[in-house]
């Protein structure tokens, strides 16, 4: 489609303005307000015991949630893609539920289930405190991050199909060997993005977590809760900005780490390695790829004498 030049300029400007106003301006403002009083002040306010505890708690939750989601996410994706059973559609719909349900609703329902008076409230009597404890925050975070790994891995599984796995089976690989050596490497990048999204969302989750956390500074505050309490309860705006910047920094770090890993992708050759690897035997490849003149593949017998091109070679049996 060809778009007239003036239209193009208008569209571009619109997109740019949209991104600037909605994304860039708020982020820059926070960065500005954080570092306005100097780097020292920022450092101070993220080194308070409450901030350190919040930082650790956020990371701890991520460290628990990610492996759980990876394992169950991959299994669920495999079941959804490869399985043939009644109710598969329903299961697929359920996976999307966390996208549709507001986190605050998740928090409320968790309290109903696990709270002292809830269905599983009995656990409290044996000393396991779910709501207002770490388990509650972990469960809430798992709930809201559950779809990411599944939804990132699913299309990749679809795309690779089952032939590679079947080929591995005919070559003698057990199910587990096939999974470890064929399926897992093939879905690696989908999984990676699923993990990135999970980490980002787990760090940033607020609504569900605030419902199930007791919210004591230095004990049960995550970074998001710290931002909230500093801003609302303590009227410590600079402290809130600083904690927010720390959160952003963590998210950025995750993205960066994944980009670096992506660069190092073993196996799947990046553009550069293709060029390098192709160079030595270029002429040969070009001919073959173009199908121009595939040299009779060298084999056990010396290459064939070119035979006249016949539509019906085999039938000249008169």
């Amino acid at each position: 489609m060809r778009i007239a030049r003036p239209t193009r300029i208008v569209l571009r400007t619109l997109a740019l303005v949209y991104l600037t106003v909605l994304l860039a301006v708020p982020i820059v403002t926070i960065l500005w307000r954080t570092f306005e009083p100097g780097f020292g002040a920022f450092w101070e306010s993220i080194r308070t015991p409450a901030a350190i505890s919040a930082f650790n708690l956020s990371l701890l939750i991520v460290a628990i949630v990610v492996p759980v989601n990876v394992v169950f996410g991959v299994v669920t994706a495999i079941v959804l893609v490869r399985g043939r059973f009644p109710g598969r559609r329903l299961l697929s719909g359920i996976v999307d539920l966390p996208f549709a349900v507001s986190p605050i609703v998740v928090g409320v329902s968790l309290i109903m289930l696990w709270g002292v008076n809830g269905w599983f409230g009995g656990l409290d009597n044996v000393g396991i405190r779910v709501i207002f404890g770490l388990p509650g925050m972990v469960i809430a975070t798992i709930f809201v991050t559950l779809p990411f790994v599944v939804r990132e891995v699913e299309p990749v599984l679809h795309e690779i199909g089952i032939e590679q796995e079947q080929a591995a089976a005919t070559l003698g690989a057990s199910r587990w060997q096939t999974f470890a050596r064929i399926t897992l490497p093939a879905i690696r990048w989908g999984l990676t993005y699923g993990v990135v999204l999970t980490v980002a969302r787990a760090l940033g989750e607020f609504g569900a977590v605030i419902m199930v956390s007791s919210g004591f500074p230095g004990v049960s505050q995550t970074l998001t809760l710290l931002v909230h309490s500093r801003y609302i309860d303590d009227h410590n705006t600079h402290g809130a900005y600083a904690a927010a910047t720390l959160l952003m920094f963590l998210a950025l770090l995750t993205l960066l780490l994944m980009t670096v890993l992506d660069r190092k992708r073993p196996g799947q050759p990046s553009g550069a390695t293709i060029a390098a690897a192709t160079a030595p035997a270029e002429a040969d490849t070009d001919a073959e790829v173009a199908g121009a003149d595939d040299p009779a593949p060298p084999g056990p017998v010396a290459s064939a004498v070119p035979e006249p091109e016949l539509a019906t070679t085999t039938r000249s049996s008169r």
Partner: peptide, 27 residues
């Protein structure tokens, strides 16, 4: 299939995309 002593070649190759030619053959 693992225990039938067969070799199978698929129409669409079923190459292990993340492995080099050598590793494919060595699998």
């Amino acid at each position: 299939p693992q225990r039938r002593g067969i070799g199978f070649v698929f129409q669409h190759y079923a190459a292990f995309k993340h492995m080099s030619v050598r590793d494919n053959v060595a699998f």
